[in-house]
Write a protein that binds this DNA or RNA. Structure first.
Ligand SMILES: [Mn+2]
Ligand SMILES: [Mn+2]
Ligand SMILES: [Mn+2]
Ligand SMILES: [Mn+2]
Lengths: 222, 222
DNA sequence: ACAATAATTTAGTCTTACCTAAATTTTATT
DNA sequence: AATAAAATTTAGGTAAGACTAAATTATTGT
């Protein structure tokens, strides 16, 4: 059998990894939405991946999918490529953090292991990508993430921004204009229990952020 | 209609361009060999490309194919990507000229026009790739090539090596060890009319080269 | 000019990865 | 516990792009 990891399969595994990040299996519908294909098609592929040798996913009808050891390894491989590429595009070609995603999305599937090693070495083996996301190590382990969502902080708490988990480039540009980028120090000023808005201060700028944003920003408390 | 230029199609067009470089149409068999697929499959694709709107190739049964204006433009686009990528890989990631081809072969189909512009600018818009091949310009014209094959030179003639048209990495490493790389000065010492061997001197090294090699090395006479 | 050989094309299959429409769970609501 | 709604799966297609085997055309050496 020995599954060839087609670009499609790589994308399935990557998205399953991200959806199962916090324990629960990934649903057919959630996967379909992410992959921008129809749920019926997802079922077909999932069944194939579960039946392959070795199986790449664990699957029970109507219960969603999780990755097997092999599937996880393959997913981390793609994610490592993606994040290293993003870092490299920013560092060597002057891409901004809102421009890199699309390009990395295509390149991640075609670069060689040699290319991966070369860019990793050229950058001094970075730990995070331009959005602050952790880069899986060369031996395909995901480093531990000790950050908390900004949405969990309350007035007077402060922290350092670790990571912004957003794909929308408009939002990324907006956050950058507010100084909200990895490495910045942030202080929570106010909290509204009605709409969960947080008033935060970064540098000299004060901003009011809704939950849909604060839940995507991850900080290390200080 | 508006053909989507799939990776397969891009490869066909690129190889047709190279095969028709000196006027004559490309034969089905020659294309099949280059693309490493069966002649029967080539016929099918060629017919599709000739029937597409706009047509990308000109084709008459048993007479081979040539590129139309549109096909040529698409081919030059891919070739520009390939050669810029090769130059980029050598200049920024330390690849050697025998290692770049494979990697560029996959990347050429997935980089954006933005990526193309950025690497071209970063390198100062190079005219040639690491093998000395001319890079099509940003507006997709192939610069004039005024070089002659080394095989056409005779004793006492000298020149500067412009380009080595070889894909075989062993051969490339061998030539490099002989000092035969773009930019090097070369002098023809002897010629054997029996086997068309040339004895050449580059730097302090003297080598005897067969026609299969000398026909792949292009020089500018001096 | 004609058979032998080489090149090319046709016809019919296969695989991958999608789709739509219809059937079947599962889950949520009363 | 019954039913409505939502999620999932099945069944039957389609499109690309390859393959094999067989048929057809060209080319070549005598
Ligand atoms: Mn890798
Ligand atoms: Mn990222
Ligand atoms: Mn281009
Ligand atoms: Mn080259």
């Amino acid at each position: 059998m020995e599954q060839t990891l087609t670009i499609s399969i790589q994308d399935y595994l990557k998205h399953i990894y991200e959806l199962t990040d916090r324990g629960a299996p990934a649903s057919t519908n959630a996967l379909a939405e992410r992959l921008k294909i129809k749920p019926a098609s997802v079922t077909g592929m999932i069944q194939k991946l579960a039946a392959s040798n070795p199986p790449l996913v664990e699957y029970q009808k109507h219960q969603g999918v999780t990755l097997t050891k092999d599937g996880k390894k393959a997913a981390l491989e793609v994610i490592r490529h993606h994040r290293l590429l993003e870092a490299w595009l920013v560092q060597t070609l002057g891409y901004s953090w809102d421009e890199v995603h699309e390009e990395a999305e295509r390149l991640e599937h075609v670069i060689s292991e040699d290319f991966e090693r070369r860019i990793a070495a050229a950058m001094g083996h970075p730990l995070r990508d331009p959005h602050g996301e952790l880069i899986p190590t060369a031996d395909l382990k995901m480093p531990l993430d000790d950050s908390t969502p900004l949405s969990a902080l309350r007035p007077n708490q402060t922290g350092t921004i670790q990571c912004v988990k957003a794909a929308d480039d408009e939002l990324l540009r907006h956050l950058e204009s507010l100084g909200i980028t990895p490495g910045a120090s942030i202080e929570v000023k106010e909290y509204s229990s009605y709409d969960h808005n947080l008033t935060v201060k970064v540098g000299k700028k004060t901003s009011v952020l809704g939950l849909n944003i604060t839940s995507k920003i991850f900080v290390e408390e200080s």
